[in-house]
Design a protein around this nucleic acid. Structure first.
Length: 510
RNA sequence: CGGGGCGUAGCUCAGCCUGGUAGAGCGCUUCGUUCGGGACGAAGAGGCCGCAGGUUCAAAUCCUGUCGCCCCGACCA
């Protein structure tokens, strides 16, 4: 058992933090509520970015960049938007420092303060108003990769930090139908990404009015279930209607020769997904990464006593690496800068995913724990006995399976197949967990009881701000979404008793 | 913003009540023995005891103030 990680049963919240620490994904920054994303963590974000970016481009979007600072007056233009974000905005009021009695102090007060973007609808809306003149300028399909800041009262690494990284797509369309299609298209992109890339099963559906994005007509979300039975909103796609178009005067001359407002959408996922990944897949031994996300696919742990054995093992490992990564890469890696006696070879130059050989002067057991806690999908153990037998001991991270594999079988194709297997099995495991933790409530009492056990609870419920607030007060649970998979089904509302209520998904959420 | 806790070595913390030479474990460095699931021994490096005042011959310790962080709630991706 890992001695630096609390078990999930003991203290789930501490376990989460311990896993992050042990895998060196992130660290606390000297600024309240902010984190430093360390290389191991950032590599996961890069993997997500790469795959998402491809998906965005495949659906016709392009990237651009808008400024970090937004004139404060922009925030007031859309009424609900102010309501939603005003309380958590960092404000920039001065533009320089000067020497004062107590050291440096802010000086040069700005006439109009800036806020640090909590999201970019406003500044992007402002620009779109200038760019869009005609229906021929539509649709505008822009995404930006950026950081945003929301001055949260309470933070947790990755799940909720004051500053976080995300992407925000902002599109403008000629018609309501197009905007709606775009909103759902991107929700599907997110759902597919979560399931295929993160091995994270999600429930898709619209939010209730009480839970939607400030300024949206409808917010759609993907909701995932974590191992402690809490739900996590993993991505959102908003149909903003003409709310922002009207607030920022984004107008165009239509095919009918009339001025009209555009229809906009926005959609985003953030580094919170790294938190989702951890809480969905990791175990008491530390991080478990789905192969598609893992920066390193295999960690090879050599075992030897004498220098003679070491040479023998090294030669054998070289052969394995050459087979998996190619002779060129084997040679290239030897002349590459590396730190701490760990040699890294690119297995896939496109994704940057690699294979490591851990030559550090530590005991083998030490190294096993080291790579295990970092979630590397496979570990190869190679000692003199293996060299003699022409085989390798292969250890699979996600289920601790161990098998002896003939070295000649270790081809790129074989490894890819193995990785795909793990990817699929991890998804199936997460899906089975979710199914086992999804219940159905026929009454409010049943809902209360079932929420005690955690997990998702499906029930017929007529969304209503007051009722939702009351339920949240009594159970801590909220309506996560109105699942698409139950669309059209209606029944008797568990709260009001009225017929014709849709099926909703309840859960206590992060 | 309410409630709780904590600031002492890179990390986790002891010491504080009862003022008097700055401590432990882990980690780090070097050497040796080791090495198939977290090794052992020896020798080292590492501190403005969060910060500012005060009391005192003397403050990590007592008093005042202040800043920061963490945890639990309310708010939220």
């Amino acid at each position: 058992m890992a001695k630096n990680i609390k078990t999930r049963a003991e203290d789930y919240s501490q376990w989460y933090l311990d896993v992050i620490k042990a895998a060196q994904l992130a660290d606390y920054a000297p600024v309240r509520g902010c984190m430093v994303i360390r290389p191991e963590g950032f590599a996961i974000w890069e993997a997500m970015q790469r795959d998402l970016d491809r998906r965005f481009k495949e659906t016709g979007h392009v990237n651009a960049y808008f400024p970090l600072l937004i004139p404060m007056s922009f925030m007031t233009k859309e009424a609900q938007h102010v309501e939603g974000f005003a309380m958590e905005c960092a404000v920039v009021t001065h533009h320089k420092l000067e020497h004062g009695a107590q050291g440096l102090r802010a000086a040069g007060e700005l006439e109009e303060p800036y806020i640090i973007r909590p999201t970019s609808e406003t500044v992007i809306g402002h620009m779109y108003a200038q760019w869009v003149q005609s229906y021929r300028d539509l649709p505008v399909l822009i995404n930006q990769w950026a950081n945003v800041m929301r001055w949260e009262l309470r933070t947790r690494l990755f799940l909720r930090t004051s500053e976080f990284l995300w992407q925000e797509g902002h599109t403008a369309h000629e018609t309501e139908q197009e905007a709606q299609a775009e909103t759902l298209r991107m929700l599907d992109v997110y759902a597919d990404f979560a399931e295929q890339f993160l091995a994270l099963p999600v429930v898709k559906g619209p939010k209730t009015d009480a839970e939607k994005f400030p300024g949206a007509v409808t917010t759609y979300a993907i909701e995932a279930l974590m191992q402690d039975g809490k739900a996590l909103q993993a991505g959102t796609s908003h149909n903003l209607g003409q709310n922002f178009a009207k607030a920022f005067d984004i107008k165009f001359l239509g095919r009918d020769q009339k001025q009209q407002h555009v229809w906009t959408t926005s959609w985003g996922v953030s580094t919170r997904l790294i938190g989702a990944l951890i809480m969905a897949h990791s175990d008491d031994d530390g991080l478990v990464l789905p192969p598609r996300v893992a920066p390193n696919l295999v960690a090879i742990v050599p075992i030897f006593k004498s220098d003679e054995d070491k040479a023998k093992v090294a030669a054998f490992i070289d052969k394995i690496v050459a087979s998996l990564c190619g002779e060129d890469e084997l040679a290239a890696a030897k002349s590459r800068l590396s730190s701490g006696d760990i040699t890294r070879y690119f297995f896939d130059k496109v994704t940057g995913q690699g294979i490591l050989v851990d030559w550090r002067d530590n005991r083998p057991g030490d190294k096993q724990f080291h790579w295990e806690q970092r979630g590397v999908p496979f570990r190869f153990e190679v000692g003199p006995k293996d060299v003699d037998a022409g085989s390798v001991v292969v250890k699979r991270r996600f289920d601790r399976a161990k098998e002896v594999v003939e070295a000649s079988k270790l081809t790129p194709k074989h490894l890819r197949n193995e990785l795909e297997d793990v990817q699929r099995l991890m998804f199936e495991k997460a899906l089975a967990f979710r199914d086992a933790n999804t219940q159905r409530a026929a009454s409010y009492d049943e809902l209360k009881q079932q929420l005690e056990k955690g997990g998702f609870v499906r029930a017929f419920f007529q969304p209503d701000r007051e009722a939702e607030a009351k339920i949240k007060e009594e159970t801590k649970a909220t309506v996560r979404c109105l699942p698409f998979d139950a669309q059209g089904k209606t029944g008797k509302c568990i709260y009001s008793g009225k017929e014709g209520a849709p099926e909703v998904l309840f859960a206590v959420a992060y």
